[in-house]
Every structure is written in C-alpha cells, then in structure tokens.
C-alpha cells in the first residue's frame, strides 16, 4: 500500500467517523443514535485494521478485534436492550435544535482544526490529516452529552467521545502501549456498565430517563 493511498484511506475513515458522530445530531430516535454509534465504531475498527496491516502490528489487530467485539457488537446490543427496557421516551427533544446543532458541529470541527494545528505541524505521520477530525469527534461527542436529554443518549454521546479519543490515539501514535490500551478498554467497559445500571435506576426512581428532571440537587 503506498503512502498516498494509506493517507487517503485513513483520512476517509476519520471523516466517516466524524460524520457518523454528526449523524447523531440530526437523527431523532434512540435506535438511530445507537446505530450511528455502532457504525462509527465500525469505521474505527476498519481504520485500525488498515493501520495494523500497514504496520504489521499484532497488538493493533488485537485492539481492533477487542474494539469490534466491544463497541460494534456488545455495546450497541446492550444499549438496544436497555432502550427496550426503559422505553424510548421519545426523548430526542434536544436542547439545541437540529440546524443549530449542525452549525455548532461545524464550528467545533473548525475549532478542532485550530487546536490540532501544532500537532499536525509536528507530525510526520501519514495519518496526521485525520487527527483534527478525531479531535472534532471528541468535541461532537461532548456536545451530544451536553445537549441531549435522555440518559441513554448521553451515554451514546460519551461513547462517541471515547471513540474520538481512541481514533486520536491510533492516528497520533499508532496505538498506546497495550497494557494501557487494555486498561482503557476495561475502564470504558466498566464505566459503560455502571452507566447502564444507573439508567435503570434513574428510570425506576424518576419514571423517565430525561436527566433534565434530575435537578433537585442544586446551589
């Protein structure tokens, strides 16, 4: 694989990852959110596999497999199950409406470019073009968490953010050391599970997953 093609593929994958994240902003149902997240994870897995193939790095293959199992298969499935249990809640009345959300996503992407500019400047890696996009998906994930009402969509947003970070790690450094990677996976998994448990608890206690109702603790 030549460097040019590799670069193009990686940038394309990064763009797809970002687009999958942004897709959440215009979709209106939780299953669609989950689907978009699964797709985003899948693009990352693809990117990691491409990278692994190019670098002939077994560790990366392992990471890709883990990621596939976790983020493409397990987590979306778990999310769907939770969503079935707690109900759709027709949540998806976001704080910020769709056009504005998309505009903000655009601005965030620009900000990500501006912020990542020294990183891109320093890097000699062929993957450097994707790094601002990865950062942008971190921002978009953050934006989803901040603007969506349902606890489940917040989880999705958080996972989108995680994906962005994972992509950033892959693009910037061809993967952090394995032990760290494993620890991160474990943490993300546990964190996801804990959040899932709390979604049930919120549902039980408040009869909704609208976290906007969680406002009794203040001042």
């Amino acid at each position: 694989m030549s460097v040019e093609i590799f670069t193009t593929v990686m940038t394309l994958a990064s763009s797809l990852v970002l687009l999958a994240g942004i897709a959440i902003l215009w979709r209106r149902s939780l299953p669609a959110y989950i689907h978009a997240f699964a797709r985003q994870s899948f693009f990352i897995v693809v990117a990691v596999l491409v990278l692994a193939a190019r670098e002939r790095d077994r560790e990366l293959v392992l990471v890709a497999l883990l990621m596939f199992a976790l983020k493409v298969v397990f987590m979306p499935a778990a999310l769907r199950r939770v969503q079935r249990h707690v109900g759709a809640d027709a949540d998806v009345r976001p704080y910020v409406n769709t056009p504005v959300s998309l505009a903000i996503a655009g601005i965030l992407t620009l900000v990500a470019y501006a912020v990542a500019q020294p990183v891109v400047a320093l890097s000699h890696l062929p993957t450097r073009g994707g790094m601002p996009l990865a950062l942008a998906s971190v921002f978009v994930g953050l934006f989803i968490v901040a603007s969506r009402r349902s606890a489940l969509s917040q989880i999705v947003g958080f996972l989108v953010m995680e994906n962005g970070i994972a992509l950033l790690a892959v693009l910037a450094t061809y993967g952090v050391p394995l032990i760290v990677e494993l620890g991160v996976f474990l943490d993300v998994l546990l964190g996801f599970l804990v959040m899932q448990v709390f979604v049930y608890r919120i549902r039980d206690a408040f009869e909704t997953t609208d976290v906007d109702r969680l406002r009794s603790l203040r001042h």
Binding site: L142, F158, F198, I202, A205, L214
Partner: peptide, 19 residues
C-alpha cells in the same frame, strides 16, 4: 433519588473529564 441523581452527574461529568 438524590443519591441516584448525584451518582449520575458524578459518573457522567467525571467520565467526560477523565476522557
């Protein structure tokens, strides 16, 4: 209820921060 609310905020904000 308060404990659940607090935990949710904690875990969400904490996870984001740590991310």
């Amino acid at each position: 209820e308060g404990a659940i609310e607090a935990s949710w905020k904690y875990i969400l904000i904490g996870s984001i921060g740590i991310a």
